[in-house]
Nucleic acid binder design. Structure first.
Lengths: 192, 192
DNA sequence: CCTACCGATCGGTAGG
DNA sequence: CCTACCGATCGGTAGG
């Protein structure tokens, strides 16, 4: 029973990722599952519920991870490397859902839209805190934190557009490569 | 006459940027212009024509700029800085169209979809060539060019998500900040 | 899980 | 530029 619901969610994730939320119909989803559209409504109550169920658990997972990093590690650079690694790993394990997360959140209706924005702000603020830690340690340049975090997150989020599980790059290696470029980029040059 | 067509295009750009191509209807567009949906068809022939007319001229402009950079400047770092600056400036001057360019290209149908991908590949390859120039000059680290270009373009493209024409950062300053972070990140450390 | 259906809306055309 | 309309498809419900 519950697994049928999960099947609907993963089918929806794939379809939304590919065609976008408004470009995917309940009939598209049901056709891929080999049932009639009306049958989906015994397991879910609306199309938007699908969107919510794809986006929010993923957001909670990302937030939980980030809180753990801020609790466990102390050095700013180490924190940043682990946070990026965690982010990329979650993304690669949930590529379809992650793409929906990035591209279709705007189709949430209130109050869920505001809830999403609050979640996203908390996540970005967690990263800014890490950057601040590195600046306080005099390891990172004194840069615009907001700007650094947007640049950083855009790079890691873009991985969802091109990551290939069968390609040569593992999620860990991808995270390492991005970290190498960006952390060198924001590090104090006197540290070389 | 021709200006009416441009009005339709700029109204569509704004709407597509906001709601996505499948989430925007011809009636949404016509309502914002204060006419009936049927009236739009004296100026355009289909909804997808709008998408094509928003995406392709912008792509051509980006490509033309990049070719000029590769012709005029010689030093890899200089080339990269100017290419990033040009890209951000075009983006900021055409925010709505640029967002459509990034998010709605997938709704193009053949043969335009293939044409778009070819255009995008040419653009990315132009950037890879610049990175290669810097490596040949022994200024940039010997990194995975594909990876570097994707990281770089993701950061500049993301600017469309947050740029505010009335905010404190000018397009030029934004380009400079991104260049500073990313170019330091890929530069040979022996050059400090 | 299905059949049968609802009202609303879609992209687009005819004809003026 | 409009009215009037087309067939197709939308999200969703009733009832079994």
């Amino acid at each position: 029973m519950e697994s049928r619901r999960h099947q609907i969610l993963s089918t929806s994730s794939k379809l939304f990722a590919e065609k976008g939320f408004p470009g995917s119909s309940m009939r598209n989803i049901s056709a891929q599952m080999g049932v009639e559209a009306a049958s989906l409504y015994s397991h879910i109550s609306s199309k938007e519920e699908l969107l919510q169920e794809i986006i929010f658990p993923l957001g909670e997972e990302l937030l939980k991870q980030l809180d753990e990093v801020n609790d466990i590690y102390f050095n700013g650079e180490e924190k940043l490397r682990v946070a990026i690694k965690n982010h990329v790993e979650v993304l690669c394990r949930n590529m379809d859902a992650f793409q929906v997360f990035i591209q279709d959140w705007k189709y949430l209706t209130e109050p869920h839209l505001s809830q999403f924005k609050k979640m996203r702000d908390r996540y970005e603020s967690g990263f800014r805190q890490i950057i601040q830690t590195g600046m306080d340690e005099n390891i990172f340049e004194n840069l615009d934190k907001k700007f650094v975090v947007l640049t950083l997150l855009s790079s890691v989020n873009w991985v969802a557009q091109w990551y290939n599980p069968e390609g040569p790059l593992t999620p860990e290696k991808i995270a390492e490569n991005i970290s190498d470029i960006l952390i060198y980029g924001i590090k104090k040059k006197s540290h070389f």
